[in-house]
Structure formats: structure tokens, C-alpha cells
Design a protein around this nucleic acid. Structure first.
Lengths: 84, 84
DNA sequence: GGAGTTTACGAATGTCGTAACTATC
DNA sequence: GATAGTTACGACATTCGTAAACTCC
């Protein structure tokens, strides 16, 4: 697991839509899909429920979203901010 | 920045020694050195003071260590731990 | 047939380790 | 000459994007 996975995961979780998330994250949709799959594989459970019409955050995904946001926010605090 | 960078950084910070950290992290010393350089480059400041005899955590590095540990610990809580 | 996600596959990028280099003692 | 960290470079793995496939309406 890398921060990239968390960034992608948060993006998809917030959009509830791979297409829009991919656009927002500036990556192609298949790349995003793959990274989420890899993350799910490593976690050992699904982060999203696959619906006929799209995806929805799973129960486990909801819990993990809190951690992911916290991790990601903390990592952003110092890496991007030019004057902290 | 990826979690790998943080893992390596915490390793070196705790050992205060690239050689021992590399051994503990199961990577070659040059790879470790490069990753730390990349991280420092992205952060915009040095994490370690380069001494004639080795390295020592810089002032900024000490501050960042807290964040790095927190991020890393949070990320470990769910990815590796098999139960609770 | 359209909207949405996944699979296939080659190109680009990144990480890694070995070997060589630099500097201090 | 030994210890400690960095630079050079080729091998290997990962990530990415395009194209094609699959699924449900």
C-alpha cells in the first residue's frame, strides 16, 4: 500500500464514480480501477460494492475512509504546503 | 511521496545510520540513500544533517518524524494487522 | 445502443542492487 | 585502509494509457 492508493481511494469514495474520480485525479479510468483492485486485494476486503449502475462505498470502505483521509491529510500538510 | 519513503525515513531516523537502517529495512544502502534524497527533494528541506562520520536528524526532520510515525502507524493498523 | 467498470497489452517510469567514487578518520 | 554516504548504471517491476470486452439497463 502506498499513498497513491489512498489518494485514489478517497477520490473514488467521494465521487462514488470511477469515471469522475479518474477525471479529477487526472488518470485514466482503467489505471484507477486497477489500483483500487490492488488495494482491495492487499486489504483483504472490498472497499466498494459493485452495483449494476456504478459503485458504492462498502461498510468496510466507510471505516477505512476515515483512516485514509487522516493519513492523506497528514501527508499533505507538509509535502505540498509551501509555507507551513 | 509514498509510504515507502516514510517507512525508510523512520528507519533511518531511528537508527541514525544508513547502513543499519538498510539492513533492518532489507534494502541496499544506496537504494535507501536515494529514496531519502527524493523525499528531501520533494519536501524542500533536508531531513538529516550530513556529518563527517554519519547522519543526524535535522531540526525539520525531528518535526516530520512525528507525522511520519503517525501516518505510518495508521496505515499499518489496517493493512498488515490480521486481527484487530 | 449507452453508461459504467474491468481485462489485455505495450510504453514509460521508478525502484532496486552491484560496483565504483568521495570523504573522513 | 576502514567506515559511511553518494553517484552511475543496468535489470526488474510497477504504473500508466489506449483499445477491447463485459454487464446491465
Amino acid at each position: 500500500m502506498e499513498l497513491r492508493h489512498l489518494r485514489y481511494f478517497v477520490g473514488v469514495a467521494e465521487e462514488q464514480h470511477f469515471g469522475r474520480a479518474a477525471e479529477r485525479l487526472r488518470v485514466a479510468q482503467p489505471s484507477l480501477s486497477r489500483q483500487i483492485q490492488d488495494l482491495e486485494s492487499e486489504m483483504g476486503f472490498l472497499l466498494f460494492d459493485r452495483l449494476p449502475r456504478g459503485v458504492r462505498l462498502s461498510a468496510a470502505g466507510k471505516l477505512f475512509l476515515n483512516d485514509a483521509r487522516r493519513i492523506f491529510k497528514t501527508s499533505m500538510r507538509r509535502s505540498d504546503a509551501p509555507s507551513g
